[in-house]
C-alpha cells in the first residue's frame, strides 16, 4: 500500500504569492510539502490529527489544517503561511500585539494561532472575549494559558475597528 502513497502527482499552486510547482507523493500532507519542499518551517506538525492547530495555514482564504490536507489537493490553490503574511506585513499589527502582550512563550503554536486569529479579525468588528476564545479553541497553546492571546487579538480588533471608523 505504501507504494500507492508514493505515486507522484504533479501540482501547481501559489504559495505566499509565488508560483510553485511540485511532483509530490500522493500521501504527502500539505504541511510536509510546505516544510520539506518549500522550506517554510513556520507552521508545525504537532498532533497530526487536526486537533491542535499548530499546522494552520491559509488556503484560498480559509484557515486550514496542514496535517489534514494532502499536498495533491492543493493543486491550483492559493496558500499563505506565516512567512508570507510577515513579508507582506499583512498581520504586522497582530504580530506586534502578540510580542507586546507576550502572547507567546515557546512560539511553536504561534504561526498557526496567528493564521486562525487573522481569520476571525478579517471578519471585521470587535468580537467578544468569549467569541475570540471560541474561535481559537481549535488552536492549542500549552504555555500561555490563552489569556494573553485573547488580550492581543482583542486589542487588535479594537484598534482596527477604531481605524475603520475614523
Amino acid at each position: 500500500m505504501s507504494e500507492m502513497f508514493r505515486a507522484k502527482i504533479d501540482i501547481e499552486l501559489t504559495v505566499n504569492g509565488e508560483a510553485v510547482e511540485g511532483s509530490v507523493p500522493a500521501g504527502q500532507h500539505l504541511i510536509d510539502f510546505l516544510r520539506l519542499e518549500c522550506g517554510l518551517t513556520g507552521a508545525h506538525a504537532s498532533c497530526e490529527h487536526g486537533v491542535c492547530g499548530a499546522c494552520t495555514v491559509r488556503v484560498d482564504g480559509i484557515a486550514v489544517r496542514g496535517c489534514l490536507m494532502l499536498a495533491a489537493q492543493a493543486d491550483g490553490a492559493e496558500i499563505w503561511t506565516v512567512e508570507g503574511l510577515s513579508e507582506t506585513a499583512a498581520i504586522k499589527d497582530l504580530q506586534e500585539a502578540f510580542v507586546a502582550r507576550n502572547a507567546l512563550q515557546c512560539g511553536f503554536c504561534t504561526p498557526g494561532m496567528l493564521v486562525a486569529a487573522e481569520e476571525l479579525l478579517a471578519g471585521g468588528g470587535v468580537p467578544s472575549r468569549a467569541e475570540i476564545r471560541e474561535h481559537l479553541s481549535g488552536n492549542y497553546c500549552r504555555c500561555t494559558g490563552y489569556e494573553a492571546i485573547v488580550d492581543a487579538v482583542e486589542s487588535v480588533a479594537r484598534t482596527r475597528a477604531g481605524r475603520g471608523a475614523a
Binding site: R35, L40, T41, G42, A43, H44, A45, T81, V82, E83, S86, Q95, F98, V99, A100, N102, L104, C106, G107, F108, T110, P111, L114
Partner: peptide, 18 residues
C-alpha cells in the same frame, strides 16, 4: 519585550525539526 519573540511570531524560529 523578549528579544526572541519577534522572530517566533514571524515563523523564523529554528526548532530541531527545522
Amino acid at each position: 519585550p523578549r528579544p526572541n519573540a519577534a522572530k517566533l511570531v514571524e515563523g523564523r524560529g529554528r526548532y530541531v525539526d527545522d
